[in-house]
Design a binder for these strands. Structure first.
Lengths: 208, 208, 208, 208
DNA sequence: AACTAATCGAGACGGTACGTCCTGTCTTTGA
DNA sequence: TCAAAGACAGGACGTACCGTCTCGATTAGTT
């Protein structure tokens, strides 16, 4: 999985002509464009090559398959995100994170990529795993961390599984997409509020 | 969308040779088998035809595309479900529904199909819509109905959006699959309990 | 080697759509054109397909490889030849045959094809053998037959190996091509005359 | 055509690192091996490089193309030949030459190379010409020279074109290879005898 | 000893073609 | 009219070479 070697620490320059970083960039860019415009099924390695002004070899030298290429392309989206929000208000923070992710997913090839990975899951589970590691899990960790701050501040009970809470809040967004139900900031807030009640140390007031 | 005409309403026997119902069966069966064994990407209409001992034409006369075929195949799974549970205990009922769906999804081609539909979403949104209508929405409606019974019994507040509650509970399951996080009955119960607190008319007792 | 099935004797019409004879024709024609214009190395199956207005599959359904396609294409040249000459004069007949072959080889892809087959000989000897059977051997047999008539007429000795005589006469033509030596009718006649002396029943007069 | 500069006439040692003669050797050796084992089509510059433990650059610095490399590799075979035979008997000498060539061609990549050059003839005629100059023509000249000695001795008529005679004798060998007809010393002798009759000053005795 | 220049192995590059596979359509014969 | 068989156009896949290029490291002669 050459495309993903992270920090090749302390490994003197390998022999041979180094890879062209410009090609790296052009490939991922073209992939992302096609992915966004045409969806995963409509994107082809051949088109990516031609659009990026690059030989097919140059792509396959970096990524072993179309799937892997797509994953890598989505991977670069991550960097657009700033640091996790920290307004001092846990509820505000968690809403902001979810909205952020929702926006990224909805505008962009996010769902299409996830779809492709689910399709390939049986044949090539490593790809989905890779995507999790690189893209999804870091986000989840952010969300959990924000909730953890809530625990530290005494806003959130210490005896609940924060992961499960994140599953519910983030999953609601997935569910709405798959169900075709309307998504909106309001609904995200409603979702958070419902879950929040289950997390909060102070019971909400009984309905009058 | 030939595969889905359920009730050919009152249309005297059409001329010509009638369709072979055995073929219908064999096609869906073979599709389901390949879908389950190889995943969506590994299933091909050609293989289905040969496995079912049927001409490709016979498939395409019934389903307009590979996607539609897959959707129809998944559709037959639905019938395995009995009527929605009604134990008198809303919490028990909703847990049972979610577990039921979780099991069906995890041991079948469910996620692979959903993936394929997400992949195709941009080019062919009708398919995802079809799947929603036929498979997903009925289940959601069941869940909402169960919660509505809770409202009627006074267990659940009347001012919350029950759909949002369902999103959170069902979505958590999706989220765990996509995140690769462990799924279990225990976690499903935890999820329901957290959400339940947000729905219940009686506040939970403050932590001692 | 589907392209070469000869007489499928008495085999009731096979099921399924029959092969398009127009495609057969267009493929071989396009192949021959590219072969002649660009040589064997410059011809590509992809170009043949596009030039013939045909899918690549349609070609590969008939011929297992580029080589086989080329052989088949050259095969259709054979039909341009009329019956072997029979002027009553054996020497005239044999000259005519050789000239005929020389012309066909020199203005067509003949040498390029033979070259390709020699190149492939070690990996795929069947192809060269196929070419021999279909194209070369029939011609040799014609030449031998003409000489045999000479034997019958008493012009040619009965104790010489006529095949060897044909090798020498035809081979001289090959040799000149490979050596890059000038070829001409005059040289063909000289070749035949030299060999002829070795074949003739009547010794040539000693040089004065 | 760097590979063939024989005499770098009087050009004081060029600056820079001199070429490694060991590389020269290893390249041609590996080429010859692959050529013999796999045929021309099965040989690739990449494999030669790796087999010779040499960079591709090092090959392309010496030879401009795969074809040229192959030609050069075959060229080194030539040196295995001793001086042309001179037994005093012209017929014996010429047979020996032809047998020698036949053996060299049949065991070795000779025909495959000739094939490759015929394939490339239209696009790159210079290569075939190079091969003629370097490999084929010298041999033909040897054969003609041997026959010329026969003329000088009065064994062979002075009014025949000796080249044509060589074409016939050598060509018969080519013809047998291409036709797939059995080759043997006996047949070579028969060939020479037939041609010899056409060349000889003394007519052969009429058949009894 | 520093400089210049060509060589070396390694391997990336754009490009082209290969042969395979699949999709969705079309065209046969037979029921 | 439907069925089974299978041919059809089209297009993408991933592989293999070709001939070129760019690296850092040698290895000479020249200053």
């Amino acid at each position: 999985m050459a495309g993903f070697q992270k920090i090749s620490r302390q490994q003197g320059p390998r022999p041979g002509r180094p890879r062209d970083p410009e090609a790296d960039r052009a490939i991922l860019q073209a992939t992302l464009k096609l992915l966004t415009d045409q969806g995963y099924a409509g994107m082809s390695v051949e088109r990516v090559a031609s659009e990026a002004g690059v030989g097919k070899t140059t792509i396959y030298r970096r990524y072993a398959s179309k799937e892997e290429l797509a994953v890598a392309a989505v991977g670069i989206l991550r960097d657009d995100f700033g640091p996790p929000p920290n307004t001092g208000n846990t509820r505000t923070d968690i809403i902001q994170i979810i909205v952020q992710n929702q926006v990224a997913l909805e505008h962009g090839p996010g769902f299409a990529i996830i779809g492709a990975l689910l399709v390939e899951e049986r044949r090539n589970p490593a790809l989905l795993e890779l995507f999790r590691e690189r893209i999804i899990r870091p986000r989840k960790d952010e969300a959990v961390m924000v909730l953890q701050r809530g625990v530290d501040r005494g806003e959130i009970r210490a005896d609940v599984d924060l992961e499960v809470a994140v599953h519910a809040m983030v999953g609601a967004m997935f569910a709405r997409h798959i169900l075709g139900d309307l998504e909106s900031i309001k609904r995200i807030e409603e979702t958070v509020d419902i879950v929040w009640t289950g997390l909060a140390t102070k019971p909400r007031l009984p309905t009058t």
